[in-house]
Amino acid sequence: MTWDWGRAGEIAPELFTTGLKVTAQATLGAAVLAFLLGLVLALALRAPTRWVRLPVRVLIELIRSTPLLAQLFILYYVLPSALGITMGALTTGIVGLGVHYACYTAEVYRAGIDNVPKGQWEAAVALNLPRLRVWTSVILPQAVRKVLPALGNNLIGIFKESPQLALITVVDVLGLARQLGSEDFRYLEPLTLAGLFFLVVAIPSSILVRRLERRLES
């Protein structure tokens, strides 16, 4: 058997409307969660007391060294029975993906904050700025600007990992492709289209991020 253009044309519209919408929701939802929670974790890693720092450090290491899929299983299968928390598959996926990437993003922010020159802190102290203003007007704007490319890479990472949600029954591009393939056991066209979709988005995005990186360096 070979490639069937008719079948490809038949499934493409559904794949790139219904499936695409779910993939976009999952990616953007998880990214917002990851970038916000990541910042909270990064700040918690700098907390004055080790009773905050240590548990956060352990949590980040735990999440980073176990598979996302195992974490999704915990959210999807264990939480409802253990704590009575039930979320829809897509919500579960967004939370799982977001928390997983928050741990990577925390490291990114941490590096950015560490890279702010000491003089900036000293100047903020000399100006007698309140602590909150120091963070919001002096440190974070500089820190975030420097790590924008890394955040962009994390966004692409989230996008590329999002098809894992298909394994907890989310019908994203990959999930839908699998469903369409199982209709007539011809997986070639739907899976190839799905793969191409991820390539077509991810490769130009990473080129853009690389360009941003070069621009920020100069």
Binding site: K160, E161, P163, Q164, A166, L167, L174, A177, R178, Y187, L191, T192, A194, G195, F198, L199, A202, I203, S206
Partner: peptide, 12 residues
Amino acid sequence: FRGTSVIVQMFW
């Protein structure tokens, strides 16, 4: 191979 994730490649 860096443009798509393992799961997509594995399914394919």
